[in-house]
Write a protein that binds this DNA or RNA. Structure first.
Length: 604
RNA sequence: GCGCCGGUGGUCUAGCGGUAGGACAAUGGCCUUCCAAGCCAUUAGCCCGGGUUCGAUUCCCGGCCGGCGCACCA
């Protein structure tokens, strides 16, 4: 059994995740997160929210997953997401029909032609299968759009789609969000939510699924605005895999820092560099193994239709490098498109530091004179006067001005033209912000944290498996056990479990079977600490034992009448402020009585 | 979507043209003063549909699901 099989088995058996609707044979590309998995996922999302929204001062929204067709016409997903599939009748290989046409004819944008026309073009040019050479003429071209379609309301008059990325639910609300941000750039809007892609071939568990959770931040910045403050991330080390190295087929990574990468031009955008730095530290915090982590620059050909430059965070999962986040500069693409398609303004008014004053000749003709005099030709007269004022203002210097209407010359008294030099003040301009987008695949981060936390070792000659989650993320935080289910130990353990739950901890109370079995159960789901109530706890000084998941060692800590020091210490552990060893030491230094020596498990 | 391989209690697996056995887990009980211990009992299974057959979990076909390879991954 490989580690990969063990992980899948563990995920299923212990309630992390498993294929959805198994009772009906299952459906590819959909997973249910079980009790442990749902908690782990929620904790991951909280950690993301904390780092990328709360600590950055960004806001969070929650948009619908279904939106009407025009949204996706504007976003480009309706066209750009459409694959034209053509299957070779001989060898069975699937080809992108539009790519075949583009590669073999001088047609540049085959996708715009539609499936039937592309099939005709293939027949007209006698194109062959690039793999086996079979004739492809006459084969049908099928459209495959990766978006799930639906109808909004009864009938089919209002087609809608499940969003293929959460981002669009932010872009379409830009006018209100900008107003909410009091029209001040830069500002960031994040969203954690489901997105859907009808993948041709879902694979590898959580890695490629049809319904998934994204955590996306859209950071709207002024195109000529100040770069981010890099002081907090300048020295963060990065493991980079830039385009040049990929093309040179090197598998070495460039080990550098945020500031060096920017100086050397390896990373072009200071915003992308900033988020790479933040993300690197965040991945470390949530337990991603940095020896199995890198940032890879997108090759020119693989950029999305909106991306200007893009880096992916990648993690090694089961010996494959998997994209777990993308850092793009989306430019003004999305907002411009939505402005164009919706007719709404998607800009922010940016005042100049100093209002700019310009002088301009203008006319304000007296229509009570021009109307009666020129009848329906009056508007033409006004237009002629306006043009003349702009092109030859000195012509208004005299008593009268000559203008030509339909080849006829007319003399107009200058006073009725209302000519004057007006002063205009422009205080700013409407700016379409550029978008910096860190986009995280929550399920893939989940898979990475899960796999990278997986450990096997042996305790007293017995093999065990455990998940070394950071305490912050652990779906179950503390196990509470009575050494035996009698003599008051059970009551005391329940009291302690209740007190822990009141503090908001996820507690597993377990009184069944041997103590060793209970520890192993918690190891398997990655519970960082277990607390055991024994005879000393109920008949001695009230102390309990605290058992560390990773080292499988125990120590005795005070837990008499005042539980607060213990609860505070565990709160610190949860928040990552202290390790188990540190809280042991801290609590025992304040112990009043009883053994403060760690129990030596070998000596038992 | 194509090709190859696979699908037996919760999990891992044995096996067979006459409807299944084990291990682990789980539950209850006994025992037990800290690392998957012991004893007793209990719960629980042949992916779905069709065909061949007296009879199919077993053989054949199709589907679904999974792994791997190809393609795809905006």
């Amino acid at each position: 059994m490989t580690d990969s099989d063990r992980l899948t088995e563990l995920a299923t058996r212990r309630g992390f995740y498993f294929p959805a609707a198994g009772a009906y044979g299952g459906v590819a590309g959909f997973y249910t997160y079980g009790p442990q998995g749902a908690a782990l996922k929620r904790n991951l999302e909280s950690a993301w929210r904390d780092r990328f929204l709360t600590r950055e001062g960004h806001m969070e929204v929650d948009g619908p997953t279904v939106m009407p067709e025009p949204v996706f016409e504007a976003s480009g997903h309706l066209d750009g997401f459409d694959d034209m599939i053509l299957e070779c009748p001989e060898c069975g290989a699937s080809h992108r029909a539009d790519h075949l046409v583009e590669d073999n004819t001088d047609i540049a944008d085959a996708e715009a032609l539609g499936t039937e026309r592309v099939a005709q073009v293939i027949a007209e040019h006698d194109l062959d299968c690039p793999i086996c050479g079979a004739v492809l003429a006459g084969e049908s071209v099928a459209a495959f759009n990766l978006m799930f379609g639906t109808n909004i309301g009864p009938g089919s008059s209002a087609p809608g789609y499940l969003r293929p990325e959460t981002a669009q639910a932010i872009f379409v609300e830009f006018p209100r969000l900008a107003e909410y941000a009091r029209n001040q750039l830069p500002f960031g809007v994040g969203q954690i939510g489901k997105a859907y892609r009808n993948e041709i071939s879902p694979r590898r568990g959580l890695v490629r699924v049809r319904e998934f959770t994204q955590a996306e931040l859209e950071h709207f910045v002024h195109p000529e605005g100040a770069p981010p403050d890099l002081s907090g991330v300048a020295e963060v080390s990065l493991s980079l895999y830039p385009i040049d190295d990929q093309e040179a087929a090197t598998t070495e990574h460039v080990e550098t820092t945020v500031s060096e990468a920017l100086e050397d031009g390896v990373i072009g955008s200071p915003w992308v560099a900033y988020y790479l730095g933040i993300a690197k530290e965040w991945y470390e915090r949530i337990g991603v193994d940095m020896d199995r982590f890198r940032f890879r620059q997108h090759l020119p050909g693989e950029r999305a239709h909106y991306a200007v430059d893009c880096w992916d965070a990648e993690a090694e999962l089961g010996s494959n490098w998997i994209e777990i986040a993308g850092f793009s500069t989306r430019g003004t693409y999305d907002l411009s498109r939505h402005a164009e398609h919706s007719g709404e303004s998607m800009t922010v008014f940016e005042p100049y530091e100093e209002p700019r004053t310009t002088e301009r000749p203008a006319v304000d003709p007296d229509m009570s004179y021009l109307g009666p005099e020129f009848g329906d030709r009056a508007p033409a007269v006004v237009e002629a006067l306006e043009q003349r004022a702009a092109s030859e203002p000195e012509a208004f210097d005299g008593e009268e001005i000559e203008i030509a209407i339909d080849g006829e010359s007319h003399s107009i008294p200058v006073p009725i033209t209302g000519f004057e030099i007006v002063e205009e003040t422009i205080s700013g301009e409407h700016v379409t912000p550029e978008v910096i987008e860190p986009s995280f695949g929550v399920d893939r981060v989940f898979a990475t944290v899960f796999e990278h936390a997986f450990r096997r070792d042996s305790v007293e000659g017995e093999e065990r498996t455990y998940l070394a989650f950071p305490p912050e993320l652990a779906p179950t935080f503390v196990g509470v056990f009575p050494l035996m289910d009698k003599d008051g130990m059970d009551e005391r353990a329940k009291e302690i479990a209740d007190a822990l739950r009141e503090r908001g901890f996820a507690v597993e109370y377990d009184s069944s079977g041997s103590i060793g079995r209970r520890y192993r159960r918690q190891d398997e789901i990655g519970t960082p600490v277990c607390l055991t109530v024994d005879y000393e706890s109920v008949e001695g000084d009230g102390s309990v034992t605290l058992r560390d998941r990773d080292s499988a060692t125990q120590s005795r800590v005070p837990a008499g009448k005042g539980l607060d020091p213990l609860l505070d210490a565990l709160t610190d552990l949860r928040a990552g402020r202290q390790t188990v060893a540190e809280i042991d030491a801290g609590l025992r230094s304040g112990a009043v009585a009883g053994s403060d020596e760690p129990i030596d498990s070998e000596a038992e």
